[in-house]
Design a protein around this nucleic acid. Structure first.
Length: 291
DNA sequence: ACTCGGTCCTGAAGGC
DNA sequence: TGCCTTCAGGACCGAG
């Protein structure tokens, strides 16, 4: 269940292994994930150099030297690993990308010896992931990106902005902070964690929480950045079979803790379902449902 | 303009 | 042991 911190960790772990390298071959082992692979994916990727990587919401983006961006999303169960070129594809290995080191890259101080080719493997049992191609200059206008709200860790996501968004919504606050039109990257886990810290009941109508926008902004930022730090500190080695890079153990206050004692007041953590998603909260600490 | 529920997918977990 | 059901979840989509 990669959320924004996990996606960021995957990005940071993968980047040093892929930037500056040429995509020698792309091997697709099926024709689609959640949506079909782009028809010209081989033509666009093969021969291109990965110049840099970036993240927008939960999308991982590989920027290529031919002006195209290779967009990827890990969905629910997706992961990238780096394997030797002798890697035998496993079940659910859907895309294998062979990368070759460039002469320029080999001139860098830390690359004294010629680097072997590596295989970047995309593995996704539930196939909620996706891949897409877009010109770098057109990414922001692309269907997947043009309605996305600000990044939670950016200055555009601030008290005034969030208060304005909350004031016009009466749906439960839990669902609103998970809405990509309000803020991106806050998934089911971190939504529950944020509301726990803010002492707001997840069923509170959003408009009644507008006066707490400042605290919500702060807690969303804190919860996500702490998880990114946690991911970074447990990221050992991105390379190797079975590598779980990006899927780190993290301590949650409420998520998945139904019946266990609240860390603040020892009252048992409760679970409700909102919009088909589990919400966890402390019924004693998170009483704010009005005012 | 906003809200709600359905949909995609597989594997893990629980009931009988 | 094994079959069945339920759940997990991001993001899009259409209906109200």
């Amino acid at each position: 269940m990669p959320e924004l911190p996990e996606v960021e960790t995957v990005l940071r772990g993968m980047t040093p292994h892929v930037v500056g390298k040429t995509i020698q071959t792309l091997s697709l082992r099926r024709t689609d994930l959640r949506i079909p692979f782009p028809t010209d994916m081989h033509k666009t990727l093969e021969g291109a150099v990965i110049t840099r990587t970036s993240r927008r919401a939960k999308y991982l983006v590989f920027h290529l030297d031919n002006g195209w961006n290779w967009i990827t999303h890990l969905g629910m169960s997706g992961r990238f690993t780096i394997e030797p070129v002798t890697h035998e594809p496993l079940k659910h290995d859907h895309a294998l990308i062979e990368l070759t080191a460039n002469p320029v890259r080999e001139q860098l101080a830390e690359c004294t010896a010629a680097e072997p080719n590596i295989l970047l493997v995309f593995h996704d049992p539930r196939r909620f992931g996706l891949m897409e191609l877009v010109k770098d200059s057109e990414q922001a206008q692309h269907k997947l990106f043009n309605k996305l709200a600000p990044e939670p860790l950016s200055n555009q996501f601030n008290e005034a902005y969030l208060a304005e968004q909350l004031a016009k919504r009466k749906a439960p606050i839990k669902q609103i902070i998970m809405d990509n039109h309000v803020v991106v990257g806050v998934g089911n886990i971190y939504a529950s964690e944020t509301l726990y810290r803010s002492r707001i009941h997840p069923a509170t109508p959003a408009l009644k929480t507008a006066k707490h926008a400042s605290e919500l902004v702060g807690n969303i930022r804190d919860v996500l950045s702490e998880a990114i730090e946690s991911g970074g500190s447990t990221l050992r080695d991105f390379v190797g079979a079975g590598s779980n890079a990006g899927y780190f153990q993290h301590n949650f206050d409420v998520y998945g803790r139904e019946g266990e004692p609240c860390n603040r007041c020892t009252s048992p953590i409760q679970k409700i379902v909102q919009g088909g998603r589990a919400s966890f909260f402390c019924g004693k600490c998170q009483k704010l449902k009005a005012n």
